[in-house]
Design a protein around this nucleic acid. Sequence first.
DNA 1: AATCTTTTTGCAACAAAGTTGCATGTGATT
DNA 2: AATCACATGCAACTTTGTTGCAAAAAGATT
Lengths: 142, 142
Amino acid sequence: MFLMMEAQIDEILRKNQLSVTGSRKRILELFLMSNGALAHGDIEKKTGEKFDRVTVYRTLQTFLEKGIIHSIPTPDNSVLYALCKDDCSEGHHHDNHVHFICSICGKTICLADVTVPEVKLPVGFLPHEYQMVVTGLCKECR
Amino acid sequence: MFLMMEAQIDEILRKNQLSVTGSRKRILELFLMSNGALAHGDIEKKTGEKFDRVTVYRTLQTFLEKGIIHSIPTPDNSVLYALCKDDCSEGHHHDNHVHFICSICGKTICLADVTVPEVKLPVGFLPHEYQMVVTGLCKECR
DNA sequence: AATCTTTTTGCAACAAAGTTGCATGTGATT
DNA sequence: AATCACATGCAACTTTGTTGCAAAAAGATT
Ligand SMILES: [Mn+2]
Ligand SMILES: [Mn+2]
Ligand SMILES: [Zn+2]
Ligand SMILES: [Zn+2]
């Protein structure tokens, strides 16, 4: 099963024309293993002293640009990242799903099946993208 | 008309049991004059060298706690603040309106009349607060 | 108006978060 | 194996946010 994961990681990187390196493999692995979104800090902690802080920044930046991950705005203005669905491509994301943040455990979860509803805006406003974040209690913490 | 504003500022501060000081008056004035949300940096620039950076941080913190302003999460994870409606009080905000961010001019606007719709979540999730941010083009930039 | 008390402010020092340039190391291609 | 482009680590730096404390200003009391 770990071999499967490794193959999957390789495939994702190749598909996005990225060379397969240690930090990229490790960070992508973290995302695949995690059920919630990750902050830059989380990744730094989990990779330990293995990689430079700068490398983590640049890797996340690269993944963002390639559409491998997307960032999530949170009410406390911290930066979170989560895997995109397969069909996100460079530049054009379509992760228009709701994000849920648990007030107790702090975990942020992509509700991939809950689509962000469109709302009617006042005249003059031309909407492009809708984002929705819900805070509350998750399954484990309620 | 400027006298009116000054009176209004005084009233807001008094109503919230805050002493009326130079920085609080000035920063509150900036919010009342602005039609969009303000970032910490905006405020620093507009107050010039008048007040210390730390004072701006603390003033915003105080206004937040008192329910005079609310913060807005943005897709690029910067921190924005905007005035609350009159009936927000300490701790309990009810600014459950949609926020609009223009991709051209960058202005962030409170759509006070557009209520955030509630969505049905998967079983197990207990929602508490819904936040919604829409990006696109504003009236002036479209 | 003068005095006392409480709160706010500015300063300095610090901590955390993020950026940039450049030399070196590694992965991909032939 | 040799080459070349790209990714990484390091150092130095900027930007952003925090904390403790003394001085200053605001509010209350006489
Ligand atoms: Mn997501
Ligand atoms: Mn608002
Ligand atoms: Zn939880
Ligand atoms: Zn605009």
